[in-house]
Nucleic acid binder design. Sequence first.
DNA 1: CCTCTGCATCGACAGACGTCGATGCTCGTC
DNA 2: GACGAGCATCGACGTCTGTCGATGCAGAGG
Lengths: 114, 114
Amino acid sequence: MLPDASCSAGPLTGGMGAAEATELARVLKALADPARLRLLSLIADSPTAAACACDLTEPLGLSQPTVSHHLKVLVDAGFLDRDKRGVWAWYSLVPGALQRAVAGVPGVAELSPA
Amino acid sequence: MLPDASCSAGPLTGGMGAAEATELARVLKALADPARLRLLSLIADSPTAAACACDLTEPLGLSQPTVSHHLKVLVDAGFLDRDKRGVWAWYSLVPGALQRAVAGVPGVAELSPA
DNA sequence: CCTCTGCATCGACAGACGTCGATGCTCGTC
DNA sequence: GACGAGCATCGACGTCTGTCGATGCAGAGG
């Protein structure tokens, strides 16, 4: 017979709740895509931290509807801000949004300096 | 006719490369799941930063094969370390792995203190 | 007023992902 | 050696996701 104490460890009641995990996963899913990471990188590297949609299509090698879709995902996730100037759409980083999302990962916020 | 200078902005040649973005997306995809986030949270909250697989099945409300699958994904992504002690499998956090993954996100590493 | 341009939306399709039950393997116990 | 328990793997299924071409919409120019 195996020992009664299954693993000599408690039932592990801690950890984040299901709702919290689902919400964080929803935000991280928006980041977990090569095209979207490159979009964020392009905009972040821009001098003004903002870029026109027409300049974002070619560097990715994707079709215009696909890029528009990815940009919408990033806007919905709260990472980008959309500003329609005339015919053109300008996207800019939402300050602190990336840091806030990343700080919710277990074992990251605890070790980050204030 | 619209102005020749499309958006008054350059072609945006910067940004991360395709290979780099794909690799980072692969790692982030391993994090972008509620079950895996809760697993990491459970293990991180454990006193020894390690937990037996048998203690991880019930808190998630998922079947044993599903939990085993998620643990394998986290191990393959480099976030967890597997240590088989007799019949039981103990999983522990790989120190710094989460921080390293998260530091690769555009606009995060640049603002983090050294 | 008509046309052209930039961008978003729609519909469709292939591929990846999460989940499960069933099965197999490796230990410890009797 | 036979049994039982913990865990990984397999096969299958439904769903979500990334991608595209086609279309629709709003604004600028002639």
